[in-house]
């Protein structure tokens, strides 16, 4: 029971973290190494909101907006000028963005760790079928599932989703139809970075909030995104579940081998099914 709940909560966190990355990749083929920095930005932003207003829930609304706003700046100022160059140039720029964002966070919030606690309603553990489980993790599972459903609906069932998918598949054609592809790109990038910030804010009660927090998660994101198939939200859901549950099981048996196994899985998937375990072709949603 506990392993299942913990596994699902890990899956929810992995999904929230990687959804933005896979969306951004699906849009312009950009590998955003700064994704972890937006995650960090979200956690600090969340801390700030909680510190000023006392509301965790407000933090879940405002932190992603902040992340998206910074995302707009990064896309407009740094990425837009290089869209016509080789794809790796965009990736390189995101290396630089990591350093700048980290410095920015340090300048605003200083070096100290920040304390973010779970809201009072979720702070105490609950008893489910004789097991003691964390109420906060149950919330995370529900939140992750809701976000996955929402993303899926928006991308598959709304006109906005159609435009986004079309713009990633054939930007020239979409441009010919009179749609501002540049605006769509900015929008998707901002949405992706906003999701990263949301992940940072919502998981802050479980992890240290500090300047290096973005470095560790970025590789985790890649594992999910690649196994799910780059650019695929459905794949990201499936990969998060797979990885979350495998990890929860793995921590139970041989915790010191868990990361190693994740990377082996990543390499195997890349070599045998480079478009992911769950995707046939590279496409969005």
């Amino acid at each position: 029971m506990n392993i299942l709940i913990i596994g699902l909560s890990l899956a929810a966190m992995l999904f929230l973290l990687s959804a933005g990355l896979t969306l951004i990749f699906g849009m312009g083929g950009i590998i955003n190494f700064a994704h972890g920095s937006f995650y960090m930005l979200g956690a600090y932003g969340g801390f700030q909101v909680i510190d000023s207003t006392g509301s965790f829930w407000l933090a879940l609304v405002l932190a992603p907006l902040g992340g998206a706003a910074v995302g707009v700046l990064v896309e407009r100022l740094a990425l837009r000028p290089v869209y016509n160059r080789e794809p790796f140039v965009q990736m390189l720029l995101t290396f630089g963005v990591i350093l700048i964002l980290e410095e920015g966070v340090r300048a605003v919030w200083g070096l100290d760790y920040k304390d973010v606690s779970a809201p009072a309603v979720l702070a105490a553990p609950v008893h489910v079928l004789g097991a003691t489980v964390s109420a906060f993790r149950l919330f995370l599972i529900a939140f992750g599932a809701a976000m996955a459903a929402l993303l899926f609906l928006v991308l598959e069932k709304t006109p906005v989703g159609t435009v986004v998918r079309a713009a990633s598949a054939d930007p020239e054609m979409v441009r010919a139809l009179g749609i501002d592809v540049g605006l769509v790109r900015t929008g998707v990038f901002a949405f992706g970075t906003g999701l990263a910030a949301l992940a940072g804010a919502v998981t802050a009660p479980l992890f240290p909030v500090e300047l290096g927090m973005g470095f560790g998660v970025i590789i985790d994101c890649f594992v999910v995104v690649v196994i799910g198939g780059l650019g695929s939200i459905k794949g990201a859901v499936a990969a998060s579940l797979l990885l979350g549950l495998v990890r929860a099981g793995g921590y139970g048996f041989a915790p010191e081998w868990v990361d190693l196994l994740s990377y082996c899985l990543l390499i195997a998937v890349l070599l045998l099914r480079p478009h992911g375990l769950f995707g046939r072709q590279r496409r969005l949603a």
């Binding site: 993790r137 560790g216 915790p255």
Partner: peptide, 19 residues
């Protein structure tokens, strides 16, 4: 006793075992 990698990503399973 349990050993974990550092930096650790999640302790919940180990804590569950301890409890």
């Amino acid at each position: 006793e349990e050993f974990h990698q550092t930096p650790a990503r999640d302790f919940s399973i180990l804590l569950d075992k301890a409890m």
